[in-house]
Design a protein around this nucleic acid. Sequence first.
DNA 1: ACAATCCCT
Length: 725
Amino acid sequence: MAFWKPGSKKPEASLPLSAEVDREGPGDSGGRLVVFNRNENLALQAQRERLPIFKTRDAILHLVETRATTVLVGQTGCGKTTQVPQYLVEAGWTAGGRLVACTQPRRVAAMTVASRVADEMGVTLGAEVGYAVRFENVSTPGVTRVRFCTDGVLLRELMEDPLLSRYSVVMVDEAHERSLATDLLLGLLKKVQRRRPDLRIIIASATIQAEEFAAFFDTRHLEPKPASEASSVNAPSREPGIVSVEGRAHTVLIHYLEKPVPDYVKAAVGAAIDVHRAEGPGDVLVFLTGEEEIEAAVSMLQEEAEDNSRRLLGGGAGTNPAGGPERFTVHPLYAGLSPAQQMEAFRPAPRYTRKIVVASNVAETSVTIEGVVYVVDCCFVKQKAYDPTRGMESLLTAEASRASANQRAGRAGRVRPGKAYRLCTEKAFRDLPETAPPEMIRSDLAATVLQLKALGIDNIMNFEWLSPPPAANMIKALELLYALQAIDDDARLTKPLGMHLAELPLEPQLGKALLVSGELGCVEEMLTVSAYLQVQTLWVSPRGRQKRLDECRDRFAVAEGDAVTALNIHTAWCGGRARSFADKNMLSHRALVRASDIRAQLARHVRRVGLVVSSAGKDSAPVRRAMTAGFFANAAALAPHGGGAEGSAFRSVRGGATLFIHPGSVLFRARPAMVVYAAAVRTGREYMRDVTAIDPEWLSELAPHFYAMTQRSGNERPADAAAVF
DNA sequence: ACAATCCCT
């Protein structure tokens, strides 16, 4: 492997936090912390005390006691997620009926970590220890003391209880990931803390971002409280404390390329094969950016595996010079695969066989593959970007950050010391950005701004963002909300429309489409459409079965577009809700169940808002009118000459951009005169997804204010936006 | 000769 050069700094000094659940900890369960026979629990207690974090237990509790905010820096497997909430319980933070919250960016993490902690505390999940994720609230009012939840759930809770009055401590875990929800939550928590000095915040973060969080929460310069005020006597210091916990990960030796390579997919395949031939036992995890690359690499490796086993003839227990197996198997892993296909990548390899998993970013944070000792990293990621002038999100392949590459490398050090091979030179690596740009600054902000307004934050320009989004993104969001009549000329939330939109767990445009269905007499239908537009992978798409998929889709497809097609699917699915129905039609059973769950949740919201549930029966026009009333800003007209085999070209009504119908839409080959779309995304071309054919007349009828506004000056903005200029 | 990083209310 002459083309590899070991990194000059041997193991990475500090791998960032693993985003998954800390698994270190006592292996057994049972035993209880609130006990009458303490001896029973000695083994459990001893194991908890062996965790690296135990050494800093007192320091953590001291900081939480004396500081309003504590930043907790902890590496993979240090036990922070499972132990800190328990320390807080032991130290009395849940006395007097108060709760400790611990937020996670992902549902599975919230659920599994809650279950783990309940085991360690010897209580039933849902009693003293519970969790809350969308559709599932496993907790008991008055009994639950520690509550794990997604950060999205806590954000919603903030709308009902703006001071989070039930909580004594909120721990925001995996904060270094800088997801939109985490950033928003941290900004709001800072605000809450000003009115509730007793609220303690713990931010669990990777090393490189600890200072940034600490600086953000440092409020020593703000309004020193008069000494006469009783509450200030015991008020904690406004200077955040930082505490660092050592991890338990094994060292990972990093290798770099001596020279850059022109094709990283081929290079990744070559590196995986080199590792297989030269290294000892242990599975290989290869990071590439997306499905196309992954499938290409898998087929190359598959070919090699077949040649390889032909060469080996029988035998089966052969080893290479380093003692590694001679045989290997190959598995793709990305979120678009069905659960059954994903399982293949997790199943341990047969004896005398090495497993090579070629994965997307799912394997960086969301899931862990046991047994990985070698990582190959292409050092690229697919990253969302937002173009405010076009109101369009795009997905571009970008350089990975060093933090992300370190996280990937860390996947090799879970079971024993490992090795990581980066497909770039060491110099190129040093030039990579330290961290990825926070999601907040590259996202459509309409829903975020709406939520802030609903929380009474009227001047969003003055909101203390952890990373302020570009002004253009905020203006775009305000313009859209204004056009939807969710905010008025003074940029205040309208009543009741704006309020209701903020309460719905939908993007504002779709929320508007759902709310107007009351007047249009198609609430039943719009509940279904709204729910189906929320699920991403409705169709199963195994490679090489494109024809069959098209046939299946044609069974439900109608010329009115994807929304009306969803109605057909839902009606057919409701016939028996059978898995066999899903399989027969190449639909994802899981997605159908999820759509039904979302539909039920939306139905509850809609009833609370006072909509009378109505149905338009077989007439699709009201549904398409409702879609127009929500997505009028996303209208596009068939271009006179455009298009060919790649689909018809359209021109956006506002802006005149050239757009194509996404190949996944039922209207891909159709040529409707006018459409509205729920989302536009740029990959190679600019594509419209979730497309509905409409009557052009409807635009001026259902959104006169918007189209009149565009014609008059094209320039009118609500007050909040105007203030920037 | 057509497309899909990843999460979440």
